[in-house]
Amino acid sequence: MNRPTTAAPWQRRLAIAAGVFAGLCTLGVLGVFLMLTYEWGQPADAEGRACCWEKNATPEWTADALGLRVPETATDRRAGLHSNVQYDAALLTFTVSTEEADRFLQPLLREGAQMARNRHPEKQGYTRSDGFSHLDLPEPETFTEGMRITSVCPREANTPESNALGLCMNIHAHEFQPGTTRIYLWAGSDAPLPKPPT
């Protein structure tokens, strides 16, 4: 009677070890591939600050996209539109007299609402990929002296200016010297915003 041949115990262990090793190698290669894919999708710091900004987002186009009328007396107007897979962010900033800044802001605020002081500032040098450092300005979150902050959404105030707003926005008003204020407007949207004309 012929007995069926069976693998010796050491051969069985070797086969199991080889299978485990091959599985671990496959997982390792897959892990490296996923890590490289993620790294390639994340720009480096210098590239990250330059990434995803639309080229032709002028202050006039951005103000129109936000539904705002910038005071005619405004100087040093700057704007940007940052687009990524999660959200779009529109930025607009300009400088006016503090009196003009108050006239611009008042119709956007709810009745009786007051802008708050920045009681929890970020450290100097703080930046964000979708922030005002792209416009060669310090981030407004770093200021405390002379800084007032609020957020507004369309139709929160019963005014034509509030009704014309297209997006909710964060507002920083920084009186960086007596009688002169820089307005910072940052509006984010989960839905893609229209792109400026080329």
Rank of each mutant, 00 (worst) to 15 (best):
A164N: 14
S151G: 09
V70L: 00
R182H: 03
P160T: 06
R77W: 01
G31E: 10
G23W: 10
N170T: 06
L66T: 01
T180W: 10
T159M: 03
M115P: 01
A57M: 06
Q106T: 15
T144R: 12
A187C: 05
A22K: 06
Q106C: 00
H134E: 00
Q114D: 12
S151R: 09
V32M: 08
C168K: 05
E39H: 08
T37Q: 15
P154G: 10
T93S: 14
G179F: 07
A187G: 07
P194D: 07
R77T: 06
L108Y: 02
I16Y: 09
A44R: 12
F143C: 00
G179S: 11
T93D: 03
D88Y: 09
I149V: 14
T180V: 13
W53H: 07
G131I: 06
R110M: 14
V152L: 04
D190E: 08
A22S: 13
N56E: 11
A79R: 07
G67L: 10
A63S: 06
T62K: 09
A89T: 13
L135C: 08
T5A: 15
L167M: 10
Q177F: 00
R117T: 10
R182F: 05
P197H: 12
E111D: 15
L109A: 05
L185R: 03
T26P: 03
P154Q: 07
E141T: 11
H174V: 07
A101C: 00
V29P: 05
L165K: 07
H172Q: 02
S97Y: 03
T98A: 14
H120S: 06
N118H: 03
F104E: 03
S151A: 11
T198I: 03
H82V: 05
P43V: 09
Q177M: 12
T6H: 15
R117W: 09
A116Y: 04
S97Q: 04
E122Y: 02
L27P: 03
E156D: 04
W186N: 05
P197S: 08
T98L: 00
R3L: 14
M35F: 06
F132N: 10
V29A: 15
I171A: 08
G131L: 10
C25V: 14
G19V: 09
I183E: 04
D88R: 11
A157G: 02
L105E: 02
H174E: 02
V152Y: 05
E175Y: 03
E47V: 04
C168G: 13
R49S: 11
T95Q: 10
C51V: 02
A22G: 12
G28S: 15
R77D: 00
M147C: 12
S129C: 00
L167Q: 11
